[in-house]
Design a binder for these strands. Structure first.
Lengths: 342, 342
DNA sequence: ATCATAAGTTCAAACGTTTGCACATAATGT
DNA sequence: ACATTATGTGCAAACGTTTGAACTTATGAT
């Protein structure tokens, strides 16, 4: 293995000089710099990252902790797009990305503390944090840089990036109302997620504002899985008074809803309209194409990294949480049949 | 920051002893071990990973290099499932996972060499390597442990895990033939990928075996994107003699095919049958549900990590490439209408 | 000519571990 | 009782960097 000493010897200078060449120290003569760089190139020298980190106490690495269980997360396109934003920005900023997940949820704090105390990363990104997440408690107590993707009301001063989820759901519901619907259902996610809570809130606000009924039986909770949407439909459709439109917490779930409706013999949007969230690439390819609120998934990831780097460098965060704008994409699934015909 | 020396001082022993306690050295008295462990626990001590790596020359980290451009990859469920397999097994084996991607494809070798020469990872996983990938050249020349996910015929002695892709396509095509189809089309991926090539081969083999016609116009190449499938349909369906069944290289693409057919007014499977590959979670939720060859995506990732660890430890690979079994899942999209009715 | 400053380089300590070797003490065999 | 071996611990060097301080030589200013 070729080390800084080898380069130094070959160039006839001291290791310190080589080090300074690498880091573009101002007081290195152009000539020395050129010579050393040539030799480094020739020898294929790359500094040992570990040694460097040891003394500099910085790793140029960001950690991302995947929530348990990971299945659900990975089965959602949403996550891929988020990850793409994260990886892209991290790479652009010359950071590597370290992915970990705990073997069990009881092991989560231990896993992160190994990363943090072992000084393996400079900061961490937290996903889908629970209502009272011990991870957040640990990190803030440790005063270790971290950023939340999705807000946590229990720790309002933690840095986070999020959408205005109340508004996203308000917009989706408002859209259905504007299409003339009066009975609107909601297929939600896990109730302990702030996300579910916020979207439910926005849904209710829109209905209230128009003096529309909000019946408990028109709201059903589930997971972020297709099956949840599928099951929700048998529930909804056996109701004496069925909703004529449904807001669905996630595109993935909406695919299940679509399937469920199709099996029960209902047609979208003729019999029932649909709007969901996240606007994954496939929602355009559903039949019918799904109306969906684009939450700027890529930006969410991208911005989270930016924020984290800011936290790491100690710069103040101007605005917290950072709100990523959203936009309702109307497609066939929520088009009023008459409108559609025109 | 609490170091090994702090623990040593507090426990009244030398740093060496603490180190040996951590690594469960046999010649440590149970009493000392207990005492030291108690203090470590109390102080929340975790060894500094960098320092440890520096001397041990091992990082307990696996690298994964994402191909450029990353968009396409991340938009495919397939990747999420693969990553899940990788992360799961890596975690289970006490390895962390470092994800990188190059900023441009010309930068790929440089990126990997920073990882490798900088001794930042113990081995790397390569994805979707191209026909004559400079990354493979670099790694094998460097004699650095790596494993390919998906085979590369240019480097037959590189460790790899893959499916028998000729067979997957053979099976898919054979299935359509058994349903009575005589004119079968193929929507392929990028032609420079071994995967595309192999599947095309299997498709041809099955047709040949049954003396069925293989027309050039029934084969179309594209990307792993929905749009490719969509576009392929306008091409196919404007043909004077249209295929009655289509094999599609990927579920994602098949969604586009489905959409294209639906817009053109064709019904699946009544007018045309479909089989695709990868069996992503959503294929079950398509309308109609997609027949798909399950290639064991999770196992692919899982096994790749296992192989990589074996390469790292210098153990011999019994079989190369490691073949992950596949299985055709027949759903409505390829069911013979009469059969379906029964 | 002299002195202060600037420019370019080297020295040596430090970062937090691991580990071969040496050492002290206890246990065992003769 | 004595030599041998086993057991438990400590010493110090090493891993490959970075960086403040010191040093040397060149450059200007007076």
């Amino acid at each position: 293995m070729v080390t800084i000493k080898d380069i130094a010897r070959l160039a006839g200078v001291s290791p310190s000089t080589v080090s300074r060449v690498v880091s573009n120290h101002p007081r290195i003569s152009p000539e020395t710099s050129r010579k050393v760089k040539a030799i480094m190139e020739e020898q294929g020298y790359h500094p040992n990252v570990m040694a460097k980190s040891l003394v500099s106490k910085t790793t140029q690495t960001l950690g991302i902790m995947l929530p348990r269980p990971a299945e659900e997360l990975f089965q959602n396109y949403f996550f891929g797009e988020l990850l793409r934003g994260i990886v892209t920005q991290a790479t652009r900023m010359n950071y590597d990305l370290l992915m970990t997940t705990a073997t069990s949820s009881s092991d989560e704090v231990n896993t992160i503390s190994r990363l943090v105390r072992g000084r393996r990363v400079d900061g961490v990104l937290l996903l889908a944090s629970k209502r009272d997440d011990p991870l957040i408690a640990f990190l803030s107590q440790e005063r270790f840089p971290f950023v939340l993707i999705g807000r946590s009301e229990a720790y309002p001063d933690a840095a986070m990036v999020d959408n205005n989820n109340v508004q996203t759901a308000y917009d989706a519901t408002q859209h259905l109302i504007s299409q003339g619907h009066k009975r609107i259902g909601f297929v939600s996610g896990p109730p302990d997620l702030t996300l579910s809570h916020d979207r439910l809130l926005g849904y209710r606000q829109a209905l209230d504002e128009h003096d529309l009924e909000t019946r408990a039986e028109w709201i059903v909770e589930g997971e972020f899985l297709q099956e949840s949407g599928f099951r929700a439909m048998s529930q909804f459709m056996s109701l004496p008074e069925r909703p004529t439109a449904i807001v669905v917490i996630d595109d993935n779930v909406a695919f299940g809803v679509l399937r469920g409706l199709s099996e029960l013999g209902y047609r979208v949007p003729d019999d029932i309209s649909l709007v969901s969230f996240n606007n994954i690439a496939l929602s355009e390819m559903a039949s019918p194409p799904l109306s969906s609120v684009d939450i700027g998934t890529y930006s969410l990831g991208y911005t989270a990294v930016q924020s984290l780097l800011r936290v790491i460098s100690g710069e103040p965060i101007h605005q917290n949480p950072v709100i990523i704008p959203h936009r309702l994409i109307v497609r066939e699934s929520s088009m009023n049949p008459t409108f559609k015909r025109s």
